[in-house]
Amino acid sequence: MPVLLYVLAVAVFAQGTSEFVLAGLVPGISADLGVPVAQAGWLTAGFAVGMVVGAPLTAALARRLSPRLTLTACLLVFVAAHVVGALTDQLAVLFAGRVVAALANAGFLAVALSIVTRIVPVDRQARALAAVLAGTTLALVAGVPAGALLGALWGWRSALWAIAGLATVALVAVAALTPRRPGPDGPRGDLRVELSTLRSPVLRHSLALGVLVNGATFCAFTYVAPVVTDAAGLAPVVVPAVLVLFGLGAFAGVTAAGRLAGTHGRLVLWVGTPALVAGWTLWATLAASPTAVWVLAPVQGALSFGVGGTLIARTMAAAHGAPTLGGSFPTVALNLGALLGPVLGGWALGPLGTTGPMVAGAALAAGAALLWAAPVLARRFVR
């Protein structure tokens, strides 16, 4: 595969670490800035909002610009936002920095995904997309624990400085290796024509599935800590190890999706979506069992990101008529899920207790399984 794909993966790793690491830094930010924990928690929501808005906006604005210019500009803004965040003593400034960083992150990812589909042959695109997206899963495995460790040793600002440093290295490499145009003539399609691809039933179906599957993932994953400590009775120090296991499973799932999505994508979705429902339901039922935690964390990570990675490949294939905006479509869908999931999970904590987010995650996954099967069931009943 082109070296550029691995460079893009490094950048995605830095950005994924930034997206996920904040949950472990919120208590330190709250204490350092003198604000309630709930207000510090808004920073996570700010990042998700920026991701949803930034993907289509950046892709649309940059569609006639050089991919090299767009990607390096996004990384430059991302680095600057982290430097400002590491220096500020004001929550409002830090919040604004998170939104700006997410805008840049979303724009980078949207353009990067579009480039992948133009520099790699069709039969290898699923594997190439998986290679780039592996940066996100590696962020769960290594970036988030490393950021939490830095925060514990030298304060939350050190984690932001480390992310800024890694993103700077990626910026230099991206500037050196990214082509000025992703194809011989570069994308010149009309914006209205690209947006018209959203009329495709396959594309809209894939996007809706992406929202539900990622919503289920973040609904349960966001609240894993209380399940581990309160329901299973494990020590708080065990939580990072459980998250690492989930991340290892996620990496395996994305890797498998890269190998299977191109030729056996439908099979992955037929098997994977019901398995997700069963997995979250089983975890909610066996939440008091430490063994269930150790076994189901990597399994659910693999299923969540395996199905999610397959949906991204399916979405990109369905959006072939949108060479510049296509990468923004799955980015928006997945981050809408990342917004929806934690909200539903938090709501479920009230009436259902600690395992409520797992139950809500199972419900979202069940919605995805039904939505995936709906066209087949409709054709069968219509006949």
Rank of each mutant, 00 (worst) to 15 (best):
L212Y: 05
I163C: 07
L140G: 08
G151M: 07
A131R: 14
F218C: 12
L207F: 15
G183D: 14
R199W: 12
L203H: 13
G210N: 14
P145I: 11
E194Q: 15
R188S: 13
A159D: 08
F221R: 04
A134E: 09
A159Q: 05
L198G: 04
G186F: 02
L160Q: 04
L129I: 15
T217E: 12
A216I: 05
L203Y: 08
L207H: 09
V169L: 15
R127N: 02
L129Y: 06
T136A: 15
G186Y: 09
L177R: 12
L149D: 14
T136I: 13
R124I: 07
A131T: 12
G151D: 09
G165Q: 04
A131N: 09
I163V: 15
A220F: 06
R157Q: 12
L203V: 14
T136Q: 11
T197Y: 04
G147M: 08
V202T: 14
L133G: 04
L140S: 04
A162Y: 00
G151L: 02
R188Y: 13
V169W: 00
T178R: 08
V141R: 03
S158G: 06
S158H: 03
W161D: 11
L150N: 10
L129T: 09
H205D: 13
S200H: 08
L140H: 00
L166H: 02
V132T: 09
A131M: 11
G210K: 00
G186N: 12
L195T: 00
V132R: 08
P184V: 07
D190E: 13
T217A: 10
P145V: 03
T222I: 04
V193E: 13
Q125G: 02
V141N: 08
D190I: 04
G189A: 12
L160G: 03
S200A: 08
Y223M: 09
L209S: 03
